[in-house]
Simulated scan of single mutants.
Amino acid sequence: MHILLVEDDHKAARLLARGLEEEGYVVTVVHAAHEVEAVDLARADLAILDWMLPGKDGVTLCREWRQRGLPLPVLMLTARDALADRIAGLNTGADDYLTKPFEFDELLARVRALLRRVVRAAPALRQVADMTVDPQTHEVRRAGVSLDLTPKEYAILEFLLQHVGEVVSRLQLAEHVWHADLIAIDNLIDVHMKNLRRKVDAPGSAALIATVRGRGFRLAPPEATDA
């Protein structure tokens, strides 16, 4: 499942993103409302939205989403704990409201509750060749056999799934999976990608993940990866 986190406090955003990723979620982080314009909201399953953002605040952003008919579930985060503020946040179209400071376990419980209520029009399973991925349970199967992926390996695979047939650069993986500078985790990408390919493209299976020399990685059916 894909979570959009809009939080202007960079340290808080890193900590939240790391915690959510350890639970198996793919997290896209932005720090201001105008940065949301570069995000494909149709790919997100939930937004965690801070009230106090620079420029356009979270309440205004949420209201605009609802006026556009965007059904994306929203969990609003704020230091405002007055009843009138909570009502105002919910009246803009937010689905839930959590005041700061909060325990991560409570945020996680609310995230899970909101995601359980999400009704997706698209098929539950995503498939590439004989590999199926269930975004609800994070179960990955290849030729009917369940693959035991770590949360980070699943996050990489899900990001590749969002770009099936396209080349995903190492920089994109660094930013969207680790939220880190490429230089800092370049070797880490190699380690996780090697482990992921060992599981997905086991001996005897046609390769689904290809290395595109000098550009990055691509997930695609065998005939495409051979091209």
Rank of each mutant, 00 (worst) to 15 (best):
L4Y: 03
L5M: 02
L5R: 01
L5H: 01
V6P: 07
E7Y: 07
E7W: 11
E7I: 10
D8P: 14
D9M: 00
D9K: 00
D9N: 06
H10K: 00
A13E: 07
R14M: 05
L16M: 09
A17S: 08
A17Y: 05
G19F: 01
G19I: 06
L20H: 03
L20T: 07
L20A: 01
E21R: 13
E22N: 04
E23I: 10
E23S: 09
G24A: 05
Y25N: 00
Y25H: 05
V26P: 06
V26S: 11
V27K: 01
V29A: 00
V30F: 11
V30S: 01
H31E: 04
A32M: 12
A33D: 06
A33N: 04
H34C: 13
H34A: 11
E37T: 03
E37A: 06
A38T: 14
A38M: 11
V39G: 02
L41P: 12
L41Q: 07
R43A: 15
R43V: 15
R43E: 15
R43L: 15
A44D: 12
A44W: 10
D45N: 13
D45A: 15
L46E: 02
L46Y: 14
A47P: 12
A47T: 08
I48V: 14
L49R: 01
W51P: 09
M52P: 10
L53E: 05
P54V: 10
P54H: 06
P54N: 06
P54Y: 09
G55I: 12
G55Q: 06
D57A: 13
G58L: 11
V59R: 12
V59E: 10
V59K: 08
T60Y: 15
T60Q: 15
T60M: 14
T60I: 11
L61K: 06
R63E: 13
R63N: 06
R63T: 12
E64K: 08
E64W: 12
R66G: 09
R66T: 05
Q67L: 14
Q67V: 13
G69L: 02
L70Q: 08
L70P: 08
L70H: 05
P71Y: 08
P71E: 13
P71W: 07
L72Q: 10
V74E: 02
L75E: 03
L75S: 02
M76Q: 01
M76R: 00
M76P: 11
